[in-house]
Write a protein that binds this DNA or RNA. Structure first.
Lengths: 117, 117
DNA sequence: TTGATATATGATCAGATATTCATACAGCAG
DNA sequence: CTGCTGTATGAATATCTGATCATATATCAA
């Protein structure tokens, strides 16, 4: 990857080594960035935010976001696959909910951070 | 957008209305999801995480991530554009830093959330 | 000035992603 | 069983994203 030779590499090698020592492990990095990516889409963020308050079915979410039910279903599959949401069947209707309510804290904190700029 | 017809829409209309009332505004939604998206790439997440500890130049980051300096520069431009990082020039070297240290809390919290699954 | 270093930037392209469309499936009513 | 509703899923398409390459810029040194 890195075929450039740069003086900083020699001068700042200790800094790079320290950073490597404090770096997140590959699995952790992947996990965290995947979680962020899940909330990095406006549609999915709204889905998660809504499901934090109350469970909703695919049709409700489609009405809320004003997109097709198929599109919502695809997004829900992503969120389901990564364990962020789960569902409960009642007849033909599937009610979705957020598994870990602490996601609310994450979104609130993000709201604080972006409000400053 | 929504040309499907579904009975839930009538039955759960109050639920959808409530969700709409509690929904994040368009600007807030965009802002938060953009912040999440910034940390939703493993490379950028590692950059931000490293810069939270100490300022580093492009070359250092390239060595840390083992990618080209050009790739790092492009990522830094994104982070700079959205105000997450800033730089300081010293000769020909640009030292980058994270503007809002509270980003550490966000990443820590995300780490807790994904550790459970 | 010239040259070297560190970084920025634009163009391009491959891969990822999201929506749409069509279809399939599960549960219920009849 | 048949038909209907709500949802899932696969394929195709269009868009977005990230890396690479080439080139440009800024600072310093000689």
């Amino acid at each position: 990857m890195n075929n450039d030779k740069c003086g900083c590499r020699i001068v700042h090698q200790d800094k790079v080594d320290q950073a490597k020592a404090h770096d997140l492990g590959p699995a952790t990095t992947e996990g965290i960035s995947t979680l962020f990516k899940a909330c990095g889409d406006p549609g999915r963020l709204r889905i998660v935010y809504a499901l934090l308050r109350q469970e909703m079915c695919v049709c409700d979410l489609a009405a809320l976001l004003d997109v097709s039910e198929s599109a919502v279903s695809h997004q829900l599959r992503l969120l389901r696959t990564m364990g962020l949401v789960a569902n409960r069947r009642e007849g033909t209707v599937l009610y979705y909910r957020v598994v870990d309510k602490r996601l609310a804290q994450l979104i609130d904190l993000a709201g604080l951070l972006q409000a400053r700029e």
